[in-house]
Structures are given as structure tokens and as C-alpha cells.
Design a binder for these strands. Structure first.
Length: 591
RNA sequence: GGGGUCGUAGUUAAGUCGGUUAUAACGCCGGCCUGUCACGCCGGAGGCCGUGGGUUCGAGUCCCAUCGACCCCGCCA
């Protein structure tokens, strides 16, 4: 064991030293960020998770330490004792928090050596993600990613403190559970003691938290891992963390109040930011109509306008035909369209085709008409009405998509974000929260040929819509709400069904057979019959919240040990093959 | 399942129309240097051009396959 550590303790973190410490004897421990050997004096930038302090080895002040310091290389682990001194005049480093001072070392111990790291642990060079993930423990030494994880800790702590203040009880729910239908693909875990049987890892603790309401815990929360075996994206990992909660005897508005308080607390303690409350609300219908998506980015305009009524009788066949087949024509307007280069403009049809749009019409508005491939097919009156509805001025650029409502909204909803990003229309460091309410209870699935729950099958319908459950399920609104931040869904929840009769009706609307329902959640229906209080809840994607707060481009930058797009871990090389003995024990066959 | 971008020293990149010895910067190693802070100066080492096959007199470069990383569509109640 190191003599130094048994003899004396670390007294300060590197990044905490300030001019007020001058004159004090301090003991620091950390990693060698950089070494600058001037032949005589040697400088070392000593780094720990709080930052960097310059420590100085002077041959005249401490020959022993100076000699030892010659051995120091990148990432060596050091313990130093010395005196905090003011830097010589003109030698301050304003880019360091500790740049006013330095530590004149009188004793050094090299606690450990290090191989030369495979990449520089500075901020200057971008390292490929393959290399970063393989040496994740080194990547995690780098400042920006360490900052992200420290922010994550602050947010998690703020969440726990706030929720405890609000009377919430933290309760753990099982990871080894039962496969749930109507959702994402489950990760399965074979049961050794029950050959041929499988647990499923939870996609969310949904049923357990509702059972906790039945049990009377009243306010539950958990910061908990959830698992979904689906393909990954920049903002999606197969295991992710939710801030999960459930409350009894509350209305939708009560819950929204509590969550707005939570967000305010998170942003205050995480970033020192004061949010403006309450957050604006949009119904699902408004969101789709104005932004084309249920997760609108409201940091900029470019809203969608419906032109179906204007163009349904147009001479332009594509538009008229789409309208006659029940489709729609919508448009967005970009002020001062010249900001978009010819080349960027040419790429846009390809972009919207990703979302199924067969074309993208455009029009440049002039003093007297349009410059546009479709201009000659339109009457003066149609052009005038479009200009008016789009509130268009000369120089503006209008984009039109005509197709089924889904394609039109997808294409334009994504195009508006694409253009805004391209042109830098989004003010950085702004946080636009919006509640989306009144989601439809069901969506018709073409692949399954039946209605599916939009949120999940335990969501309560809006009470006045209950009579429509079986007759017109497509018209039923749910008491469900999402919280959207800067175009990302960061959380979603609902008031739940607490009456077993309503729950049975919803299962009927979903065309689930009694046997199916019984087998899958008979236990839950039973529980509903033992005095279930009215309740509701919500769950937040912690990773996504941190991602937005940190300005990270990928969810992987806010998770300590993330998976690649193929759901592998480059560090541990998981997943890996199991031995024959393991498989046999689990009664699994080798393919 | 589909579309796209990428893969060259430890790292980040360049590499022209297919041409002879594959460049640079940083890092690394050695030497010099007492005030630097991405220290500086001098010298040096370091390559399965992702892998396999093909075309060619000749392939880092062209073609095919394959592996891997990333972005997107589908998917993700």
C-alpha cells in the first residue's frame, strides 16, 4: 500500500483550488493530464473529476520530487503535497478555473503508472466512437462526457429530493417479470427451475406501479431501468432509464402541476435555469395539424397550413386527385427563401421521400405571382388565396405536399425541422416545453387489422367518450398526455382505468379475447376489483432529458456504458455465446 | 428487413486519372531547454491501407462479397 495514502489524506480536489487557498499546504491526488518539462522546472496538469490544477516541480525547492517527476508520463496517477502559491504576474491562465494559483510540490509519489492511452484525453480531437467505446473507461475520463454524467447525477438527485418533498415513496419493482403484449419486443430470460418458461425484462413497471396504488402507497416513484428489444437510434438504447411515478386521487391537472414543479427543480439544480411555468398545452389534434407531429419542436415557426379546400378543385391533377381520394394538401412557408441554396433545395424532395412523399412542390413568391413549376396550373384566385393563407410576402418560399394525411404530416413535420436545422433557425440554449393532451385512445393498425392502444390499454378514456368505446373506437380520446421538449417526447403518462368494467370494455375494443386477457393480466383485473383508487401517472426518459440539457447529439454520450447500434457492448463484447452446459441447464436447444 | 455515409501509423486526417519509396499533424521514444500551460527546438521509431476474392503488367485507388461503426425508414403501446 502506498506510504503516502496511509500517511496522509487527500485534502482538496484539483479543480476546487482558488486564490483563497494561497499559503495552505494541500495534498492532491489525480491523473497526469499533461507534463511540460523545461529541463529545469517541470509543470504537470493534475486532473481529477473536478478539473485541473497546475503543480510545479522546482529542482531548487525540492530536488527529490523533481527527480521523481522526470518519470511522469500521461495518465500516471500521482499524489502530491505542496503549497498553494499565487502565480507570478503575467503567468495566470484564464482558461482554467484554478489559473490564478499553482501548487509548489515538496513531495511526490507516483501511485501508479499508465500505458500510453490509445487516444488523447483532451477535447481537441474527435475520436471515432468505435475506439471510444472500446476504451470507455478512458473516454469517461474526458471532460465533456464526465460533465454529462455529473449533470445526470445532479438531475437524479434533484428528482429524488423533489419527489420526497412531495410525499412520494420510492419502491423497487421486479426486473424478472411477465411478458406483456401490446408493446415493444421483450427481452426474455429463461427460467432454469421452470424448463421452457421465460421471464421478460420490463418495458416499464406499468402494472406493478398501478398495483402499488391498489395497495395504498398513494405516491410512488422509481428511477428505473427499462428494456425494449427494438432497433436502436441516436436517441434510443435497448436499456434506458425512466423516472417512473404513479399517484392516487389526482386529476390530469394535478399531475401536470407536480411535473412542472419537477422540471423547474431539475433545470434549476442541474443548470441554474429558471423555467417559465406553466408550460403551454396543445391537443394532439392541434399538434398534428400545426406541426405534423405529436412531438413538435416549438423553438421556431414554419407551421403547417392546410390548403386542401383551396386546391381540391384545382386544374393541377395531382392535387385534385389526392383531395378526391380523401387525402390532403398542406404547405409550409419559409420567409426569405433565398437563404436556402439551390443545392439544398434540390435535396429536399429526396428528404421528404424518406417519409413516403412522392413529390415536393415549391413556389417562390414574387410581387406579381410565383416562380414555380405549378404556377401555370393555378388560377389567379387560387394563388391569391394561398398567399393569403400562408401570409406570404415577396421572397418567401412555399413547400407543398399532397398525399394521405399521415404522409403529408410526416413529410412536412420533418421537413420543417430539417430546414430549421439547416438554416440555424433554432436559438441554442432555449427550452420549449409543451404538453400534448387528448391523444386518441386507439389507432387502427393496418398490419394487425385491428385497433391498438395509442398509449397502453390501461389508459382511461375521456369520460364523455366512454359510450363510444365499442361503437366508434377511432373517436375516443384518452386522458393521456406527453411532455415534449424541443421536439423530443421526454415523458408520457395517463390517468388509468380504475374500474374493472371499463377495463374489460377497452380490452373488447382492442379485440383481445377473454382467454388472452385472462392469461396475460387476469391478476391485474382481479386487483382492480378490490377497491382501486382513481389514479394516474407518468414516466420520463431520463437519458433524453439529460441529452437535451447537455446538448448531446447522441444518447450514448449521457450513458456511462452504452450499446452500439447492433446492441453490442464494444468494451465487454456482450452479448457472447453461452456454453453448452449453460444452455442445457436452461433447457435451451442449440440452433 | 430496407436506404445511406464511413473504414489508411496509437489518434485524426490527406492520398489526383490505377503507376514505382503511402503523406501530414498530434501522440510515442531519445536528446536539449528554469515559467510553461495544446511549452519550444533537434533527432527517431511506427503501416495486414478493415477482411476475403476478382479485374489489371500493376490496386489504398476499380468491381464483388463480407465484417464493423454511425445516420435514417420500418419498428419503438
Amino acid at each position: 500500500m502506498s506510504e503516502f495514502i496511509t500517511k496522509e489524506k487527500r485534502t482538496h480536489y484539483c479543480g476546487d483550488l482558488r486564490i483563497s487557498h494561497v499559503g495552505e499546504t494541500v495534498t492532491l491526488m489525480g491523473w497526469t493530464h499533461r507534463r511540460r518539462d523545461h529541463g529545469g522546472v517541470i509543470f504537470v496538469d493534475l486532473r481529477d473529476r473536478t478539473g485541473i490544477a497546475q503543480v510545479v516541480f522546482n529542482p531548487e525547492k525540492s530536488p527529490m520530487a523533481h527527480t521523481e517527476a522526470h518519470k511522469i508520463r500521461s495518465e500516471y496517477v500521482l499524489a502530491v503535497r505542496g503549497t498553494v502559491i499565487t502565480r507570478l504576474e503575467g503567468m495566470e491562465n484564464p482558461s482554467l478555473k484554478t489559473g490564478q494559483i499553482e501548487v509548489m510540490v515538496d513531495e511526490l509519489e507516483i501511485l501508479n503508472e499508465s500505458k500510453t492511452p490509445p487516444f488523447m484525453l483532451d477535447e481537441e480531437t474527435e475520436i471515432s466512437e468505435t475506439v471510444r467505446l472500446k476504451y470507455r473507461y478512458l473516454d469517461l475520463r474526458r471532460r465533456h462526457i464526465q460533465r454529462n454524467l455529473l449533470l445526470r447525477d445532479k438531475v437524479a438527485t434533484a428528482t429524488r429530493n423533489y419527489l420526497h418533498d412531495q410525499g412520494f415513496v420510492e419502491i423497487e419493482t421486479p426486473f424478472l417479470g411477465k411478458s406483456t403484449p401490446e408493446g415493444a419486443r421483450d427481452y426474455l430470460v429463461p427460467s432454469r427451475v421452470n424448463p421452457g418458461m421465460f421471464y421478460a425484462l420490463p418495458q416499464s413497471p406499468q402494472l406493478f406501479k398501478q398495483l402499488l396504488m391498489v395497495s395504498g402507497f398513494d405516491r410512488y416513484y422509481q428511477i428505473v431501468k427499462c428494456f425494449r428489444d427494438e432497433d436502436l437510434r441516436a436517441d434510443r438504447q435497448p436499456e434506458f432509464t425512466q423516472i417512473d411515478m404513479e399517484l392516487s386521487f389526482i386529476s390530469e391537472d394535478d399531475l401536470i402541476d407536480i411535473i412542472e414543479g419537477l422540471m423547474a427543480r431539475i433545470f434549476k439544480e442541474g443548470m441554474g435555469l429558471d423555467l417559465t411555468l406553466p408550460f403551454p398545452r396543445l391537443t394532439y389534434g392541434e399538434a398534428i395539424s400545426r406541426y405534423g407531429r405529436d412531438n413538435p419542436d416549438r423553438r421556431f415557426g414554419l407551421e403547417l397550413k392546410d390548403l386542401t379546400d383551396v386546391l381540391s378543385t384545382s386544374q393541377l391533377k395531382v392535387f385534385a386527385e389526392v383531395a378526391s381520394r380523401g387525402g390532403m394538401i398542406k404547405a409550409i412557408k419559409l420567409e426569405d427563401g433565398k437563404r436556402l441554396s439551390r443545392k439544398d433545395l434540390d435535396l429536399l424532395p429526396g428528404y421528404v421521400s424518406d417519409f413516403g412523399a412522392k413529390g415536393l412542390a415549391w413556389a417562390r413568391v414574387n410581387e406579381d405571382g410565383w416562380t414555380s413549376p405549378i404556377f401555370k396550373f393555378l388560377t389567379a384566385e387560387e394563388v391569391a388565396r394561398i398567399n393569403e393563407r400562408m401570409d406570404a410576402s415577396p421572397g418567401d418560399l412555399i413547400f407543398f405536399v399532397a398525399d394521405t394525411p399521415k404522409v403529408v404530416n410526416d413529410a412536412l413535420g420533418n421537413l420543417r425541422v430539417h430546414i430549421a436545422e439547416k438554416l440555424g433557425l433554432i436559438t441554442p440554449d432555449t427550452y420549449a416545453f409543451t404538453w400534448i393532451t387528448e391523444f386518441p385512445m386507439f389507432e387502427y393498425s393496418e398490419t394487425e387489422k385491428r385497433f391498438m392502444a395509442t398509449h397502453h390499454p390501461f389508459t382511461s378514456p375521456v369520460l364523455e367518450d366512454v359510450p363510444l368505446l365499442l361503437s366508434e373506437p377511432g373517436k375516443v380520446r384518452a386522458q393521456a398526455y406527453d411532455l415534449v421538449l424541443n421536439g423530443s417526447e421526454i415523458g408520457g403518462g395517463s390517468i388509468r382505468i380504475h374500474k374493472s368494467a371499463v377495463q374489460s370494455t377497452v380490452f373488447k375494443a382492442l379485440a383481445l379475447s377473454d382467454e388472452d386477457v385472462r392469461a396475460k393480466f387476469g391478476f391485474f383485473l382481479d386487483a382492480l376489483e378490490y377497491g382501486t383508487p382513481p389514479h394516474g401517472g407518468i414516466a420520463f426518459g431520463l437519458d433524453r432529458i439529460i441529452m437535451i440539457m447537455a446538448g448531446a447529439e447522441s444518447i450514448r454520450d449521457v450513458i456511462a456504458f452504452p450499446k452500439t447500434q447492433k446492441a453490442t457492448c464494444l468494451l465487454t463484447e456482450a452479448p457472447s455465446a453461452a456454453s453448452l452446459a449453460q444452455l442445457m441447464e436452461l433447457s435451451l436447444k442449440v440452433v
